[in-house]
Amino acid sequence: MNKIENNKAWFLVLPVFILVAFSAIIPLMTVVNYSVQDVFDTNTRYFVGTEWFKAILNDAALQSALMKQFMFSFTTLSIEIPLGIGIALLMPKRGMAASLCLVLIALPLLIPLNVVGTIWQIFTRSDIGLMGWSLREMGVAYNISRNPVDAWATIILMDVWHWTPLIALLCYSGLRSIPEAYYQAARIDRASRWAIFRYIQLPKLTNVLIIGILLRFMDSFMIYAEPFVLTGGGPGSSTTFLSQALTTMAIGQFDVGPAAAFSIIYFLIILAVSWVFYTTIMNMQKEK
Protein backbone atom coordinates (compact mmCIF):
# COMPACT_ATOMS: atom_id res chain seq x y z
CA MET A 1 0.00 0.00 0.00
CA ASN A 2 1.29 3.44 -0.86
CA LYS A 3 1.53 5.53 2.24
CA ILE A 4 1.08 9.27 2.29
CA GLU A 5 3.89 11.43 3.58
CA ASN A 6 2.46 13.29 6.57
CA ASN A 7 4.43 14.34 9.61
CA LYS A 8 1.24 15.24 11.48
CA ALA A 9 0.86 11.50 12.01
CA TRP A 10 3.32 11.98 14.85
CA PHE A 11 0.46 13.40 16.91
CA LEU A 12 -1.37 10.07 16.64
CA VAL A 13 1.72 8.25 17.84
CA LEU A 14 2.59 10.70 20.59
CA PRO A 15 0.53 9.13 23.43
CA VAL A 16 2.14 5.75 22.76
CA PHE A 17 5.54 7.37 22.63
CA ILE A 18 5.09 9.18 25.95
CA LEU A 19 3.67 6.18 27.82
CA VAL A 20 6.29 3.74 26.61
CA ALA A 21 9.12 6.24 27.02
CA PHE A 22 8.13 6.80 30.64
CA SER A 23 8.42 3.10 31.44
CA ALA A 24 11.33 2.39 29.14
CA ILE A 25 13.75 5.29 28.97
CA ILE A 26 13.91 6.38 32.63
CA PRO A 27 14.63 2.85 33.93
CA LEU A 28 17.06 2.21 31.07
CA MET A 29 19.02 5.37 31.94
CA THR A 30 19.08 4.32 35.57
CA VAL A 31 20.43 0.90 34.64
CA VAL A 32 23.20 2.54 32.63
CA ASN A 33 24.02 4.76 35.60
CA TYR A 34 24.18 1.77 37.93
CA SER A 35 26.48 -0.09 35.60
CA VAL A 36 29.40 2.27 36.05
CA GLN A 37 29.19 2.61 39.83
CA ASP A 38 29.44 0.68 43.05
CA VAL A 39 26.17 1.68 44.67
CA PHE A 40 25.46 1.22 48.37
CA ASP A 41 22.73 3.83 48.56
CA THR A 42 21.96 7.03 46.68
CA ASN A 43 24.54 8.98 48.70
CA THR A 44 27.24 6.36 49.10
CA ARG A 45 28.44 5.36 45.68
CA TYR A 46 31.74 5.18 43.80
CA PHE A 47 32.46 5.55 40.13
CA VAL A 48 34.17 2.40 38.86
CA GLY A 49 34.14 2.97 35.11
CA THR A 50 33.97 -0.17 32.99
CA GLU A 51 35.09 -2.55 35.72
CA TRP A 52 31.74 -4.35 36.00
CA PHE A 53 31.56 -4.92 32.27
CA LYS A 54 34.98 -6.51 32.30
CA ALA A 55 34.08 -8.73 35.23
CA ILE A 56 30.75 -9.82 33.74
CA LEU A 57 32.13 -10.57 30.29
CA ASN A 58 34.79 -12.79 31.82
CA ASP A 59 32.50 -14.56 34.29
CA ALA A 60 32.49 -18.24 33.39
CA ALA A 61 29.13 -18.94 35.08
CA LEU A 62 27.43 -16.23 33.06
CA GLN A 63 29.05 -17.35 29.83
CA SER A 64 27.70 -20.81 30.41
CA ALA A 65 24.27 -19.36 31.27
CA LEU A 66 24.35 -17.56 27.92
CA MET A 67 25.24 -20.76 26.06
CA LYS A 68 22.48 -22.64 27.86
CA GLN A 69 20.12 -19.83 26.99
CA PHE A 70 20.85 -20.04 23.27
CA MET A 71 20.58 -23.82 23.37
CA PHE A 72 17.27 -23.64 25.18
CA SER A 73 15.76 -21.04 22.85
CA PHE A 74 16.94 -22.89 19.76
CA THR A 75 15.64 -26.27 20.94
CA THR A 76 12.23 -25.06 22.03
CA LEU A 77 11.69 -23.00 18.88
CA SER A 78 12.68 -25.84 16.59
CA ILE A 79 10.13 -28.10 18.29
CA GLU A 80 7.33 -25.58 18.80
CA ILE A 81 7.17 -24.08 15.33
CA PRO A 82 6.79 -27.25 13.22
CA LEU A 83 4.53 -28.78 15.85
CA GLY A 84 2.40 -25.65 16.01
CA ILE A 85 1.99 -25.55 12.23
CA GLY A 86 1.11 -29.24 12.25
CA ILE A 87 -1.54 -28.82 14.92
CA ALA A 88 -3.04 -25.85 13.06
CA LEU A 89 -3.35 -27.97 9.91
CA LEU A 90 -5.08 -30.76 11.85
CA MET A 91 -7.65 -28.58 13.60
CA PRO A 92 -11.26 -28.80 12.39
CA LYS A 93 -12.27 -25.90 10.16
CA ARG A 94 -15.70 -24.93 11.46
CA GLY A 95 -18.53 -25.67 13.80
CA MET A 96 -18.64 -26.66 17.45
CA ALA A 97 -15.58 -28.90 17.14
CA ALA A 98 -13.47 -25.95 15.96
CA SER A 99 -14.56 -23.75 18.88
CA LEU A 100 -13.95 -26.49 21.39
CA CYS A 101 -10.52 -27.20 19.93
CA LEU A 102 -9.57 -23.53 20.10
CA VAL A 103 -10.60 -23.16 23.71
CA LEU A 104 -8.84 -26.35 24.84
CA ILE A 105 -5.64 -25.66 22.95
CA ALA A 106 -5.43 -22.06 24.17
CA LEU A 107 -5.74 -23.11 27.82
CA PRO A 108 -2.03 -23.32 28.68
CA LEU A 109 -1.41 -19.82 27.30
CA LEU A 110 -3.62 -18.19 29.89
CA ILE A 111 -2.05 -19.66 32.99
CA PRO A 112 0.25 -17.37 35.03
CA LEU A 113 3.90 -18.29 34.50
CA ASN A 114 4.62 -19.43 38.03
CA VAL A 115 1.42 -21.50 38.06
CA VAL A 116 2.70 -23.27 34.93
CA GLY A 117 5.84 -24.05 36.92
CA THR A 118 3.76 -25.29 39.83
CA ILE A 119 1.58 -27.49 37.63
CA TRP A 120 4.64 -29.20 36.19
CA GLN A 121 6.41 -29.41 39.50
CA ILE A 122 3.42 -31.30 40.89
CA PHE A 123 2.92 -33.34 37.73
CA THR A 124 6.50 -34.61 37.66
CA ARG A 125 6.93 -35.42 41.35
CA SER A 126 7.28 -39.13 41.83
CA ASP A 127 5.21 -39.19 45.04
CA ILE A 128 2.16 -37.09 44.12
CA GLY A 129 2.46 -36.40 40.39
CA LEU A 130 0.93 -38.46 37.62
CA MET A 131 3.91 -38.32 35.26
CA GLY A 132 6.61 -38.80 37.88
CA TRP A 133 4.67 -41.62 39.49
CA SER A 134 3.94 -43.41 36.18
CA LEU A 135 7.59 -43.23 35.13
CA ARG A 136 8.65 -44.66 38.47
CA GLU A 137 6.09 -47.46 38.23
CA MET A 138 7.43 -48.27 34.76
CA GLY A 139 10.89 -48.53 36.26
CA VAL A 140 12.35 -45.43 34.60
CA ALA A 141 14.94 -43.68 36.74
CA TYR A 142 13.63 -40.14 36.52
CA ASN A 143 14.60 -37.40 38.92
CA ILE A 144 14.63 -33.74 37.98
CA SER A 145 16.39 -32.63 41.14
CA ARG A 146 19.32 -35.01 40.61
CA ASN A 147 19.72 -35.64 36.92
CA PRO A 148 20.44 -32.61 34.69
CA VAL A 149 19.22 -34.44 31.57
CA ASP A 150 15.84 -35.12 33.18
CA ALA A 151 15.64 -31.50 34.32
CA TRP A 152 16.37 -30.21 30.82
CA ALA A 153 13.93 -32.61 29.18
CA THR A 154 11.21 -31.60 31.62
CA ILE A 155 11.74 -27.87 31.13
CA ILE A 156 11.64 -28.27 27.37
CA LEU A 157 8.53 -30.42 27.60
CA MET A 158 6.93 -27.77 29.82
CA ASP A 159 7.83 -24.98 27.41
CA VAL A 160 6.46 -26.97 24.46
CA TRP A 161 3.29 -27.63 26.42
CA HIS A 162 2.93 -23.98 27.34
CA TRP A 163 3.83 -22.18 24.10
CA THR A 164 3.12 -24.46 21.13
CA PRO A 165 -0.52 -23.34 21.38
CA LEU A 166 0.54 -19.76 20.55
CA ILE A 167 2.05 -20.87 17.23
CA ALA A 168 -0.92 -23.17 16.58
CA LEU A 169 -3.43 -20.39 17.25
CA LEU A 170 -1.67 -17.85 15.04
CA CYS A 171 -1.25 -20.38 12.21
CA TYR A 172 -4.83 -21.58 12.52
CA SER A 173 -5.99 -18.02 12.05
CA GLY A 174 -3.65 -17.52 9.11
CA LEU A 175 -5.02 -20.67 7.45
CA ARG A 176 -8.63 -19.54 7.91
CA SER A 177 -7.89 -16.40 5.91
CA ILE A 178 -7.19 -18.43 2.74
CA PRO A 179 -10.20 -18.23 0.38
CA GLU A 180 -11.82 -21.58 -0.46
CA ALA A 181 -11.33 -20.82 -4.18
CA TYR A 182 -7.58 -21.40 -3.84
CA TYR A 183 -8.16 -24.96 -2.65
CA GLN A 184 -10.66 -25.61 -5.43
CA ALA A 185 -8.15 -24.44 -8.01
CA ALA A 186 -5.53 -26.71 -6.48
CA ARG A 187 -7.92 -29.66 -6.62
CA ILE A 188 -8.58 -29.05 -10.31
CA ASP A 189 -4.83 -29.02 -10.88
CA ARG A 190 -4.59 -32.28 -8.91
CA ALA A 191 -1.99 -30.68 -6.63
CA SER A 192 -0.48 -32.98 -4.01
CA ARG A 193 -1.02 -32.38 -0.30
CA TRP A 194 2.57 -31.19 -0.06
CA ALA A 195 2.17 -28.80 -3.02
CA ILE A 196 -0.92 -27.28 -1.42
CA PHE A 197 1.00 -26.73 1.79
CA ARG A 198 4.10 -25.36 0.11
CA TYR A 199 2.48 -23.03 -2.43
CA ILE A 200 -0.86 -22.06 -0.90
CA GLN A 201 -0.77 -22.46 2.86
CA LEU A 202 2.82 -21.64 3.79
CA PRO A 203 2.92 -18.26 1.96
CA LYS A 204 -0.22 -17.21 3.81
CA LEU A 205 1.37 -18.27 7.07
CA THR A 206 4.60 -16.28 6.75
CA ASN A 207 3.20 -13.11 8.29
CA VAL A 208 1.70 -14.75 11.34
CA LEU A 209 4.79 -16.93 11.68
CA ILE A 210 7.01 -13.85 11.82
CA ILE A 211 5.04 -12.57 14.78
CA GLY A 212 5.01 -16.01 16.34
CA ILE A 213 8.72 -16.68 15.93
CA LEU A 214 9.77 -13.22 17.14
CA LEU A 215 7.48 -13.43 20.17
CA ARG A 216 8.71 -16.89 21.00
CA PHE A 217 12.35 -15.94 20.60
CA MET A 218 12.02 -12.90 22.85
CA ASP A 219 10.02 -14.70 25.50
CA SER A 220 12.07 -17.87 25.53
CA PHE A 221 15.21 -15.78 25.85
CA MET A 222 13.77 -14.15 28.95
CA ILE A 223 12.29 -17.27 30.55
CA TYR A 224 12.35 -16.97 34.32
CA ALA A 225 9.42 -18.00 36.48
CA GLU A 226 8.75 -21.44 35.02
CA PRO A 227 12.18 -23.09 35.46
CA PHE A 228 12.64 -21.17 38.70
CA VAL A 229 9.57 -22.84 40.20
CA LEU A 230 10.15 -26.21 38.56
CA THR A 231 13.86 -26.83 39.16
CA GLY A 232 15.12 -23.72 40.95
CA GLY A 233 17.86 -23.62 38.32
CA GLY A 234 19.26 -26.98 39.40
CA PRO A 235 20.53 -29.58 39.75
CA GLY A 236 23.65 -27.50 40.39
CA SER A 237 23.26 -24.69 37.91
CA SER A 238 22.39 -26.87 34.94
CA THR A 239 19.09 -25.10 34.26
CA THR A 240 20.00 -21.61 35.46
CA PHE A 241 19.16 -19.42 32.49
CA LEU A 242 20.12 -15.78 32.01
CA SER A 243 17.12 -14.13 33.62
CA GLN A 244 17.46 -16.19 36.74
CA ALA A 245 21.18 -15.51 37.04
CA LEU A 246 20.40 -11.81 36.65
CA THR A 247 17.57 -11.76 39.17
CA THR A 248 19.63 -13.62 41.75
CA MET A 249 22.38 -11.08 41.29
CA ALA A 250 20.15 -7.98 41.41
CA ILE A 251 17.73 -8.94 44.16
CA GLY A 252 19.34 -11.82 46.02
CA GLN A 253 22.82 -10.46 46.41
CA PHE A 254 21.90 -6.81 45.83
CA ASP A 255 24.87 -6.28 43.52
CA VAL A 256 23.14 -3.66 41.39
CA GLY A 257 26.30 -2.53 39.62
CA PRO A 258 27.28 -5.87 38.06
CA ALA A 259 23.62 -6.77 37.55
CA ALA A 260 23.11 -3.56 35.58
CA ALA A 261 26.18 -4.19 33.44
CA PHE A 262 24.86 -7.71 32.86
CA SER A 263 21.43 -6.32 31.92
CA ILE A 264 22.89 -4.02 29.31
CA ILE A 265 24.88 -6.82 27.67
CA TYR A 266 21.81 -9.07 27.78
CA PHE A 267 19.63 -6.41 26.19
CA LEU A 268 22.19 -5.70 23.46
CA ILE A 269 22.29 -9.39 22.54
CA ILE A 270 18.51 -9.68 22.25
CA LEU A 271 18.38 -6.40 20.35
CA ALA A 272 21.03 -7.52 17.84
CA VAL A 273 19.54 -10.96 17.22
CA SER A 274 16.01 -9.59 16.87
CA TRP A 275 17.13 -6.79 14.59
CA VAL A 276 18.94 -9.16 12.22
CA PHE A 277 15.91 -11.43 12.20
CA TYR A 278 13.40 -8.61 11.72
CA THR A 279 15.39 -6.94 8.92
CA THR A 280 15.99 -10.19 7.06
CA ILE A 281 12.30 -11.02 7.05
CA MET A 282 11.17 -7.52 6.12
CA ASN A 283 13.59 -7.57 3.19
CA MET A 284 12.43 -11.00 2.07
CA GLN A 285 8.86 -9.70 2.03
CA LYS A 286 9.76 -6.58 0.13
CA GLU A 287 11.36 -8.62 -2.63
CA LYS A 288 8.28 -10.77 -3.09
Binding site: S23, A24, P27, L28, T30, V31, Y34, M218, F221, M222, Y224, L242, S243, L246, T247, A250, I251, V256, A259, S263, Y266, F267, I270, L271, S274
Partner: peptide, 9 residues
Amino acid sequence: MAPPAVFVL
Protein backbone atom coordinates in the same frame (compact mmCIF):
# COMPACT_ATOMS: atom_id res chain seq x y z
CA MET B 1 12.62 -7.56 24.12
CA ALA B 2 13.85 -5.89 27.28
CA PRO B 3 13.99 -8.67 29.85
CA PRO B 4 11.76 -7.53 32.76
CA ALA B 5 14.52 -8.67 35.07
CA VAL B 6 16.55 -5.73 33.76
CA PHE B 7 13.97 -3.24 34.85
CA VAL B 8 12.89 -4.60 38.19
CA LEU B 9 14.93 -2.35 40.44
